[in-house]
């Protein structure tokens, strides 16, 4: 199987879907002639031309709305945010128009659109360029929220997102763009709404997604050497959440730690933990613990920024907590 970087897998997904369906187009800042700020759209303008790969002015609200309007009459836009932090400029379009249109129109207009782009703390970008907004977007009925962690999922989930008839928030991670992995050739589709058990185990369930999968797997590996068997689940889709896979695992392990780069209060982990409590409280042998970003704006200073993130050490400590185990 070919080995591709995450960014190239995304590129391949877009190219294949644009080849397959003329209604699919890519629009955003620097996506065409510049080949993308993070080179995710490398070569697409050369291949598909200015009709289908479109550079915009710096008008996130404007071009997001253009995407939504075009989707109302049959196109299937991919709207790239250079980073999801900039989606805050377009949030009225995404939440009021894309998420609500089908409902408000009594089902007459659906919005098959993908909003995609990088996100996260990627190294000294400071508070305005490091946002993780999945908790905000997952809050809204009408949106689908997808966050791939691997190159294979980047391709398979993006292809599914482009084919979805609903608005999809597709959040990549800047630090994953260079991560390589095996990626199936051709029509590789990963279904939306399905989590992936990436490591099987029996003592504790570790729920995570996006970049946190790397440190979570490292923590699981470290504890395996100490006789702890951790099951690691990549949630992949945050809305709709795959509760079946989550509950099946926690019913087996009876313990759970949730790891994310999101802020703790009203975050994804808080919501997921509550849903587990509501369903199977009596099955838990310990309170669910969460490892999140620290509850502060994101600092420029490298050391401070790193201190925000779920490290292997912090993850191991919470796993030990739920196992009532001393390190």
């Amino acid at each position: 199987m070919p080995i591709l970087a995450y960014r190239d897998a995304l590129n391949q997904a877009m190219a294949e879907e644009m080849e397959r369906d003329d209604n699919v187009y890519l629009m955003g800042e620097e996506v065409a002639e510049y080949n993308g700020a993070y080179k995710v759209s490398q070569g697409l303008w050369d291949r598909f031309g200015s009709r289908r790969v479109i550079d915009t002015p710096i008008s996130e609200g404007g071009f997001s709305g253009i995407g939504i309007g075009s989707a109302m009459v049959g196109l299937r836009p991919i709207i790239e945010f250079m980073t999801f932090s900039f989606s805050l400029v377009a949030i009225d379009q995404i939440l009021n128009n894309a998420a609500n249109m089908r409902y408000m129109s009594g089902g007459q207009f659906s919005i098959p659109i993908v909003f995609r782009g990088s996100s996260g703390m990627a190294g000294c970008l400071a508070a305005t360029h490091s946002h993780r907004l999945e908790a905000i977007y997952s809050h809204f009925p009408g949106l689908t929220v997808v966050m791939p962690a691997t190159a294979a999922d980047a391709k398979g989930l993006l292809k599914s997102a482009i084919r979805s008839d609903d608005p999809v928030i597709f959040i990549e991670h800047e630090n994953l763009y260079g991560e390589k992995g095996e990626v199936p050739e051709g029509d590789h589709l990963v279904p939306i709404g399905k989590a992936n058990v990436v490591r099987e185990g029996s003592d504790v369930t570790l729920l995570t997604y996006s970049r946190s999968i790397l440190n979570t797997l490292a923590a699981a590996e470290q504890l395996a050497g100490e006789g702890v068997s951790a099951e690691v689940i990549d949630l992949r889709t945050l809305r709709p959440l795959d509760m079946d896979t989550i509950l099946k695992s926690v019913l087996k392990t009876h313990r759970c730690v949730i790891i994310e780069e999101n802020w703790p209060y009203c975050g994804i982990g808080a919501g997921v933990a509550d849903r587990i409590y509501q369903e199977i409280f009596d099955e838990l042998d310990a309170p669910i613990r969460r490892v999140t970003a620290k509850d502060a704006p994101i600092p420029y200073n490298r050391k401070l920024e790193l201190s925000m993130l779920p490290t292997v050490e912090r993850i191991v400590a919470k796993i030990n907590d739920v196992l009532y185990r001393k390190a």
Partner: peptide, 29 residues
């Protein structure tokens, strides 16, 4: 929020100015 798809009536929209980019998108399409 009136809509009528078969007449190309793409809605009443209640956030002031928010539908103007939608119109541009329809023209783009």
């Amino acid at each position: 929020h009136f809509f009528q798809a078969e007449k190309g009536f793409l809605g009443g929209h209640a956030i002031v100015g928010s539908h103007i980019p939608l119109a541009t998108g329809v023209a783009f399409a």
